[in-house]
Amino acid sequence: MHPILALVLRRLALGALSLWAVSLLIFAGTEILPGDVAEAMLGQSATPEAVAAIRRELGLDRPAWERYLDWLVGLLQGDLGTSYANRMPVAELVGERLANTLFLAGVAAAVAVPLAVGLGIAAVRWRESVLDRLLSAMTLSAISMPEFFIGYALIYLFAVTWPLAPPIATVYPGMDLAARLKVVVLPVAALALVTVAHMMRMTRAAILNVMESPYIETAELKGLARSRIVLRHALPNALSPIINVIVINLAYLVVGVVVVEVVFVYPGLGQLMVDAVAKRDVPLVQACGMIFAATYILLNLTADVLAILTNPRLLHPR
């Protein structure tokens, strides 16, 4: 078997094991949280009889391990279960939100990744120039500002003061692509600002690291143009760390954007999970948790495979 295929299979098996561990942790976590879905749903109007009626119907009076096994067996058969709170199929609730999350992450990545790598290369090409310093200052400040602040600042500037884009990014089924792209302008801008900064700085650092090597000095002494040295000689050897930081940022775009979702009222997976935890809606929490964990596992695997593919020494080990 090809070593890469073997690696992928081994990692997938480990990934499935991690997912199982995560599901146990999430289930245990939701068990430890005070209250259950019956109390959370009724809130202040909870009476013991109504709470008991809900528990009976949902089977919450059964022991925890039994409920967990039920859920696990369902999952292995491809059934994510039914939401405790509104009795809708979890797959339906999650599917819609997952598509939204992937759409936002996709658009943000399509803007941010080329921009970050391009700017990173430019910063190395014109190192210590005004451009480099300006980019450094801008990216450092973008990293230092919390996302919600960037979000509110964008809303204040581009939705309230100069009404160029809508402040609220509500999307719903039946909305066409153009309308969707229009409403996500500000959240994409906020996410791009945060991720570009990180990716651009890592790109710059990774290439500069290679630029210290003796072979680059040789290339310089040969009289090659600086652009050519950066792009053809340094960049290929810096790809591995760059791919790593890009993948981490992609994972962040899928998993970590709940704050941006709240600020722009974007119906993504993060918001769904927060709501589900507040209502102690265990099947929904589990489904979101599984998706988030799987995203990390798969993206990490992709990063490792890509790192091997771009590095001949790892691709053809002696």
Partner: peptide, 19 residues
């Protein structure tokens, strides 16, 4: 009827005429 739990976002929507 839009679901906007964040008070700042509600006000922004009102000021921008989105709500």
């Amino acid at each position: 009827t839009l679901a906007i739990n964040d008070p700042t976002a509600r006000i922004a929507a009102l000021q921008a005429g989105q709500a």
